[in-house]
Design a binder for these strands. Structure first.
Lengths: 118, 118
DNA sequence: CACAATACTGTATAACATACAGTATTGTCA
DNA sequence: TGACAATACTGTATGTTATACAGTATTGTG
């Protein structure tokens, strides 16, 4: 595996669950896929349609999101919004993220500063 | 899929790459698998042998770790230590982690406080 | 001596990101 | 008006990786 490919895979693994959490958080208000790509981009999260749409569908099948077609504007859009379970899950994931972040920060500041191993 | 199972999967995805980074950081000094399980546990990262050993082997096959058998003590141990590439990769992953964390923190503080959508 | 602790190997499975390949319709501009 | 871009979505296949499962062997302890 080439270096760049390996590095990309490792980075992807590092941020793997953050997209799910981001989407759940952003779906607190109804939103549609194409718009979500833009908002995520604005937030610093690069995601492509071919990743986002299967994710939306998966989260819906898992009961965390619900969808409805809106035919109002010039073109139809499928709006997604978070379910109660999805909202609760987002809160829980947020707490878990903070916990992980705390652990990693301590680990990184301890070891990258050359701290002694016990 | 049961709720608990789904939640566990989501959490696991959230922390998926952090184990790799943790192991790379802790392998700055030679360490063996069984001891690593303990140290990770102490650091707040629960991992089982059946997860860690395949990870160590994979990282070695990818050139990020190297290993050597030590027959010195009462029982043989396979020590792993980070390669140059592995060290560089850990630095890079650490920076990426900080970037991801920044993005997620802003996103979470913005949205979980009920901030308006643009 | 039986069992726990120490230390590791190997294979299969589940889950998910994303690559790939589309589809359809509206909007823009020459 | 027609070609192309933008908008918006569906569907399938592939690659990667955590971890479940099932061991193995040896030392240490009561």
């Amino acid at each position: 595996m080439g270096d760049k490919r390996l590095t990309n895979n490792l980075i992807q693994e590092l941020k793997r669950g953050t997209l799910t959490l981001s989407v759940l958080l952003m779906s607190g208000q109804p939103t549609y896929g194409y718009s979500l790509v833009t908002e995520l981009q604005d937030a610093g999260i690069d995601v492509e349609q071919n990743t986002l749409y299967p994710l939306l569908r998966r989260l819906e099948s898992q009961g965390l999101l619900q969808s409805s077609w809106d035919m109002g504007d010039s073109r139809p859009r499928k709006y997604y919004s978070v379910t109660d379970i999805g909202r609760k899950t987002a809160v829980l994931l947020g707490e878990e993220w903070r916990r992980i972040n705390k652990v990693m920060s301590e680990l990184m500041s301890g070891l990258m500063n050359g701290e002694e191993r016990k």
